[in-house]
Amino acid sequence: MNDIILYTILILVSLGIAAAIILYVVSLKFKVKEDPRLPEVMDALPNTNCGGCGFPGCSAFATELVNADDLGPYHCPVGGNDVMKEVADILGMEVEEKDPFIAVVKCAGAIGVRKQFSEYDGAATCTIASDLYSGERGCSDGCVGLGECVDACDFDAMYMDEYTGLPVVVEDKCTACNACVKACPKDIIQLWPKGKKNKRIYVACVNEDKGGTARKNCSLACSGCAKCADECKYDAITVENNLAKIDYETCKLCGKCVVACDVRNIVADHFKQEQLDKLAERRDARLEKEKEARIAERQKAKAEAQAAKQSGEQKPLDEKLNDSAVPEKTEKEEVSTNQNPDVV
């Protein structure tokens, strides 16, 4: 009996030693050479595997970083500058600070704002619905409202607002990984600089229909009236295809365009209401003044024209227009859009 136990122990021990030797030899022989900095970089990265950097996962990104000559084109949106700095330190390289970005939803077409025409009843994903038809609401460019962006978010940084039916980005959680941007079939979501003190200004509309059509379908649509562009001193706003676009690199966040918009479609995040009110007041006052000036001008022109008519000449009117230069011209457009029944 004792012999059996002894033998058993002996056999097991010798088996264990033999296996250990084999493992040791094999591990030496087939050792994979790996850059020693790789695990360090891996540790520095957030390991969320979101793909926001453009690589299939953190380990692929780390491999790429280790082999890179210059860190310029690489950025981890989740970790931000801190992580990139850490990585640069590990690799002994320099890295430029990049402005943090955040996802913004460029559609204001909430329930009630856009007229609903039909009811979608297929598989509940935005892509399938938008492949099928132009949508259950009037504006065919607007948010479908089935939350594919929310599903795509790995960070729990989006949710669908019950009352508006639109997705909302949670600022603290959004890492600008681009997943929602890729998920949205209507290209409504865009990455935008987070801005100083979280202040940012963007147009919450992507509809390129003509003003009248757009407004008929959505009372908050951008009609491309260009009032905002006229207001902007820095030429940051362009109007193309009936849609205003803000260039975030030139935008100085003055907020003047925000109050210029008739339908308040330009969103100003984290601006103080008083500041905007003040801007609006100032603008109104200025408009009033200009209006008076214009009426006076018109009367003057009329009088002159009459005088000219009496003397048989008709030239001065054209000259007058040329003289009055840019601000006057925009004034005219503003008035004309205000009178447009489609807009009001």
């Binding site: 297929g122 598989a123 994903t125 892509t127 399938i128 492949d131």
Partner: peptide, 12 residues
């Protein structure tokens, strides 16, 4: 199940 919906989606 909305089988065809997702197959169409897969096709596209």
């Amino acid at each position: 199940r909305p089988i065809l919906d997702y197959i169409r989606f897969g096709k596209s």
